[in-house]
Structure formats: C-alpha cells, structure tokens
Computed example of a mutant assay.
Amino acid sequence: MNLQELQTLIQQGENAAVEFKALPLRPEALAREMVAFANSAGGTILLGVADDGTVLGIDGSEQLEEWAMNIARTAVIPALTVTYETVAINATWVAVVGVPKGSDKPYQTGDKYLMRVGSTNRVATQAELMRLFQMSGVFHYDTLPVANASINDLNMAALDSYFANYGFEFSKEADIARRQLLINTDILAPSGEPTIGGLLMFGINPSRYLPQAAIMFAHFNGLEIAAELIDRQEIIGTLPQQVDAAVAVMKNNLLRPSTIEGMKRKDTRQLPPDKVLREMVVNACVHRNYAIAGSRIRIFMFDDRIECISPGRLPNTVTVEKLRSGVSYASNPVLLKFMDNLRYIDRLGRGFPMIYREMQQIGKEVNVYELGEELRVVLPL
C-alpha cells in the first residue's frame, strides 16, 4: 500500500472493509476485528489511527508485527494468515493489517462468532452461523430433512423415470426396498422425511415447504427497476422445471429486431445464446443458498441487460475471478449430483467459462459480482 492509498482509506472513514485502531490495544480487541473481517468479505485494519481518522502513529514499535501475527495465529480459531506492512504519513508510521476473506469459515475468538456489518462487528445470528458452517463444508443444507414433509410429497412417476435410467423398476420394489434406496441416494433422510435436495428435485409441490425455492421474473420497459413492468411471472416446481420454464420465459421476452434481405430474415440484434441463459439459471438454482429463507432467485430483464440475482455469497475458496477459470465448489452436493445425472450440468467447471466465452464472441462482457448476501450475474443485451 502506498501513501496515496492509505490517505484514501483514512478519508473514507471506517466502513465494512476498513477499521481504525489506536494503540495501545488489547489483544482480544484486535482478534475480534480479524474474526469479523474473516467471516465476512475481508478487510483492512489500520493500527495507529483513531476512530475519527486522526493519525496517531505506532511509536515505531519493532515488535508490533510479531504481536499482530501471533494474535492471528493463537487468538483466532482456526488460525488465520494476515498480511502486515507499515506506511509513513507525514513522518508518522501506520501499520496496515490485511485480513483476507477467510477460507476456513467460520472463525471465532473465545466463544464468539463475529460478523462485519457496516462499520461495526456483531455476534452472528443462528441463521448467519448456519450459513457460515455451510460455506465451510461442515454440513450441506440440501441434505437436511424437510420438517413435516413425508415420502407422499415425492412424485413417484418422476422417481420411476429417474431410476429407470439405472436399471431399477422403482415402483415395483417393496416398500422397505424403496425407502432404503431413497435414503441411500439422499432423497430421503434416515428419519423418513425428504431431504431439501430430494424435495427440490422430485417433489410434487416443493414450494409448499420451501417457499424460497422459486424464481421471480420481471421484464421492465426501460433501464431501471422503477420502469414500466411489461411481464412478471413466478416460476415454481422442481429445479428442472424451474430451469426449463425460466429459459422459455426469457426467450419469449427477448425481442429480436430483424430486416429482410432477399428471401431471408436477418437479425439486427445479437442476443445471448440459449445455452448461456440456461447455464446462468442452472448455476443460480444449484448453487444458491437455500438457508436464506426470505429470498428467491430473481431474473430482471431491462432494455440493455439481464440480471440474475441468486441468494448467497460464493463459498470460502471461490472468488469471482476464479469463476472465469472454472473453479467451482459444491455448496449443494445433492442438487449437483442429480442435476448432473439429468444432464443439466457436467460438474467439470465449464459453466461460467462458457458463459464468458460465448458472450465475448458476440462482443459482450459479462459482469459477475457479490453484493451483500447475493451473487449477481449481468448479461448485456
């Protein structure tokens, strides 16, 4: 970090990614800041700067770096690797501690799991803590049983069709054998209730128990969400049904201006290929965080772009940059397995690279970014 970058951070004040700390500082106070940043999107701690941005300095302490590193290794659980550097501003030194987005979430100090919210830290709620554990791979939400649901909520015809591909006549099996097969394939939990993944793939009416498992589509006549609404649809059903319906709705709403040359029609507007639309929706359905109960996948179509907004941030080790090269992580392994078996995906990490490549071939650049607890994919039109 150079002087200009440091001055810019100080001028911006404390926020979701920057924290000021004056010295002396208690070790547990620094540990709390590290934990909160690591459990969120990462951040920067400026040692030697007061809360109001006044530069107080670090008094040239030669042991400060070792002290900060020891806190990251011993007071943060699991141990965290941070960066440390010093920058001089008006002959006064400031220590810059860089805390990455943690790759082993959730982190804790003592008995507290902390999250960064705005310019403050807060104890993670039960829902936030569950999402952190899910992101770390400690457990997967799609393997959990659906309360109050039963095997009667599964579509037997769909199960017959699925298992026929593997040589099983599901409907002709004895009840005990069918139940065990469903448990072995993660469609049923050992308790006898459908798993979240099983209900989303083979349920008669998944939204009855999982109202967040739906896609909201809206087509606006303009460039902003406040523009006139042309079309609005709620897409429900199993995930394969949602994917197929969402792609069909987008295609029906995409206008293809054309001219007649000779006896042939020639399109005058290049639009995203069908396979790009399909891959975008599949990724949203398979990788979204279903633990976020109050939010659905949203697809917004504007005059100049399509936005697909999926609840949940990228998992621990995945970044937006890594998506371009095909790095992926199974947030919902049950869903991923069945969507692969049904040929909606191939689990080779080729989805996002294909989206980028196909859009570049028509001269368009895809924009993917995280915003709060959501992942947003923007396809220009």
Results as ranks from 00 to 15, higher is better:
Met1Arg: 06
Leu3Ala: 12
Glu5Thr: 11
Thr8Tyr: 06
Leu9Thr: 01
Ile10Thr: 01
Gln11Phe: 07
Arg26Thr: 14
Pro27Arg: 05
Ala31Ser: 05
Met34Thr: 03
Ala36His: 02
Asn39Ile: 00
Ser40Gln: 04
Gly42Cys: 04
Thr44Gly: 03
Val49Gly: 01
Asp51Ile: 05
Asp59Phe: 10
Leu64Val: 02
Leu64His: 00
Ala68Tyr: 01
Ile71Glu: 01
Ala75Trp: 09
Ala75Asp: 12
Ala75Arg: 13
Leu80Ile: 01
Tyr84Trp: 05
Glu85His: 10
Ile89Asn: 07
Ile89Pro: 00
Val96Ser: 01
Val96Arg: 02
Val97Met: 00
Gly98Val: 07
Gly102Ser: 03
Asp104Met: 13
Asp104Arg: 14
Tyr113Ser: 02
Leu114Met: 05
Met115Trp: 02
Thr120Glu: 15
Thr120Trp: 11
Thr120Gln: 15
Val123Thr: 15
Thr125Gly: 11
Thr125Gln: 07
Phe133Ala: 01
Gly137Leu: 07
Val138Ala: 14
Phe139Asn: 07
His140Asp: 09
Pro145Tyr: 03
Asn148Tyr: 14
Ala149Ile: 01
Ser150Gln: 10
Asp153Tyr: 05
Leu154Cys: 06
Leu154Glu: 04
Tyr162Lys: 07
Phe163Trp: 13
Phe163Glu: 02
Glu169Asp: 15
Phe170Pro: 08
Ser171Ile: 05
Glu173Thr: 03
Ile176Glu: 14
Ile176Gly: 05
Arg179Ala: 09
Arg179Phe: 06
Gln180Trp: 00
Gln180Ser: 03
Leu181Met: 14
Leu182Cys: 04
Ile183Val: 14
Asn184Cys: 07
Leu188Lys: 03
Pro190Arg: 03
Pro190His: 01
Gly192Arg: 03
Ile196Ala: 08
Ile196Tyr: 06
Gly198Pro: 05
Gly198Ile: 04
Leu200Val: 07
Ile204Phe: 07
Arg208Trp: 07
Tyr209Thr: 01
Tyr209Arg: 02
Ala213Tyr: 00
Ala214Arg: 12
Met216Ser: 14
Phe220Val: 04
Asn221Ala: 15
Asn221Ser: 15
Gly222Ile: 06
Leu223Tyr: 15
Ala227Asn: 13
Leu229Glu: 11
Gln233Val: 09
Gln233Pro: 01
Gly237Asp: 00
Gly237Ile: 00
Thr238Val: 07
Pro240Lys: 04
Val243Cys: 08
Asp244Glu: 13
Ala246Cys: 08
Ala246Gly: 03
Val247Pro: 05
Ala248Arg: 13
Asn252Ile: 10
Asn253Phe: 06
Leu255Trp: 12
Ile260Gly: 10
Gly262Cys: 04
Met263His: 15
Pro272Arg: 08
Lys275Phe: 14
Val276Pro: 06
Leu277Val: 10
Asn283Met: 10
Val286Met: 13
His287Trp: 11
Arg288Glu: 11
Arg288Phe: 10
Asn289Phe: 08
Ala291Lys: 06
Gly294His: 14
Arg296Phe: 09
Phe302Ala: 09
Glu307Val: 07
Arg313Cys: 08
Pro315Cys: 05
Pro315Thr: 05
Ser325Val: 15
Gly326His: 10
Val327Glu: 13
Val327Ala: 11
Asn332His: 07
Pro333His: 06
Lys337Met: 12
Phe338Met: 08
Arg343Ile: 11
Gly351Lys: 00
Gly351Cys: 03
Ile355Phe: 02
Glu358Tyr: 09
Glu358Thr: 08
Gly363Glu: 04
Lys364Thr: 07
Glu370Thr: 15
Glu370Leu: 12
Glu373Asn: 15
Glu373Phe: 08
Val378Leu: 09
